[in-house]
Simulated scan of single mutants.
Amino acid sequence: MTESLADRIFGAALLLFGRHGFQRTSMADIAKAAGIARATLYLRFADKRALFEGLAASLVDQALADAAAAADREKAELASTVQAIVMAKELRFFKIINGAPHGAELLAVDTELTARHVARLDKEYIDILTRFGRYAEERGADLSAFGGPAGFANFLATAGAGLKHEVRDEAAYREAVQRLARVTARAARR
Rank of each mutant, 00 (worst) to 15 (best):
P101Q: 03
F22V: 11
F152R: 00
A70C: 02
A153W: 12
R179D: 13
S58T: 09
P101S: 09
V177Q: 01
E112H: 14
T81K: 10
T158N: 11
T25R: 04
G147F: 14
A67Q: 02
T158L: 10
F17N: 03
P149E: 01
A187Y: 03
G35M: 03
L43K: 14
A188E: 07
L5P: 02
A84P: 05
I97M: 14
R8K: 09
R24V: 03
L91N: 09
F22C: 03
A6Q: 13
G148V: 07
D61V: 00
D66C: 06
L143E: 02
D29M: 08
F45Q: 02
A76G: 13
P149K: 07
A115E: 15
A159K: 00
A57N: 11
Y42W: 11
R190F: 11
V60C: 04
E105N: 07
M27P: 12
D66K: 13
T184Q: 04
D110T: 03
A171T: 11
M1L: 12
A176N: 07
V109I: 13
A108I: 12
L51S: 07
R44I: 00
A84Q: 08
H117S: 12
E124F: 09
G133W: 06
L14E: 13
I9S: 11
A108W: 08
A181V: 01
L43I: 06
A171R: 15
V109R: 00
L64K: 00
E74D: 13
R189V: 10
Q178W: 10
F152E: 00
R120K: 06
A181G: 04
A176F: 01
A28I: 08
A50V: 07
L143P: 03
A39V: 06
G18E: 03
A181W: 04
I128N: 01
T130N: 08
L143R: 00
R139S: 13
E3V: 14
T111V: 09
I128K: 09
T184W: 01
K75V: 14
Q23V: 15
D142M: 11
D72H: 12
H165S: 10
F93M: 06
G35T: 03
Y135L: 15
R139M: 12
R8V: 05
D47H: 02
A150N: 07
A100D: 02
G18D: 07
